[in-house]
């Protein structure tokens, strides 16, 4: 039988403040996204016009579909921008608060670095650095636990993919040392 008093509690070492000021509103992001997509649509539309967007004897040319899709995408973006413009007097929701943005950067920047390191040192070394670093600095977990977890994780990944399933990953000097 279950006992309701048995609880699982996990604390957040560094929760985002609830009253953090807004960085930007959802409307601003929506308009910016629509403008970027509009630019993309124009670019792709132009490229497909160059490829050929008309009908020849056997039906549409290679650029026909993408050209008109770009046109529809552009129209939908313009509609979205117009709609937000008309509603500009109403208050908009917060897209992200400063505290939230800080947390998102905390995970995004290490991920970015991970990708860079993967290119130079291989995926397994990069994954060791990412897991250990993230646990120790963002999660504030004791360093020895972080290093041990990261080492075990990278090793398990290596054995699973490289050895058991023959899935080849980018590797660097360390793996070369062991003859892989």
């Amino acid at each position: 039988m279950s006992k309701p008093e048995v609880e699982i509690v996990v604390e957040d070492p560094d929760p985002p403040a609830r009253d953090s000021p807004a960085v930007t509103s959802t409307r601003t992001v929506e308009v910016v996204a629509a403008l970027l997509l509009l630019a993309l649509a124009v670019l792709l539309g132009f490229d497909n016009w160059r490829t050929g967007m008309s009908w020849d004897s056997t039906g549409p040319q290679a650029g026909y579909f993408p050209f008109y899709l770009s046109a529809i995408l552009a129209a939908a973006c313009l509609f979205g921008i117009g709609k937000e413009f008309l509603a500009r007097k109403q208050a908009s929701e917060t897209f992200v608060t400063r505290a939230q943005l800080r947390r998102v950067t905390q995970v995004f920047v290490p991920t970015l670095l991970f990708c860079v390191v993967t290119q130079w040192l291989g995926l397994y070394v990069a994954s060791f650095l990412l897991v250990a670093g993230f646990m120790a600095f963002v999660g504030r977990i004791a360093a020895w636990k972080a290093v041990l977890t990261a080492l075990l994780f990278s090793l398990i990944m290596f054995v699973t993919f490289e050895i058991a399933f023959d899935v080849i990953m980018p590797k660097g000097p360390l793996e070369a040392l062991f003859g892989h």
Binding site: V131, F134, I168
Partner: peptide, 26 residues
Amino acid sequence: FAAVLRVPFSAIAPMIVVSCAIGAYA
């Protein structure tokens, strides 16, 4: 499985990122 939630997110997040990268590369 309920106990899996005791594992801190700061350990799980980077592992998921690595798994995603492996998946994308492979």
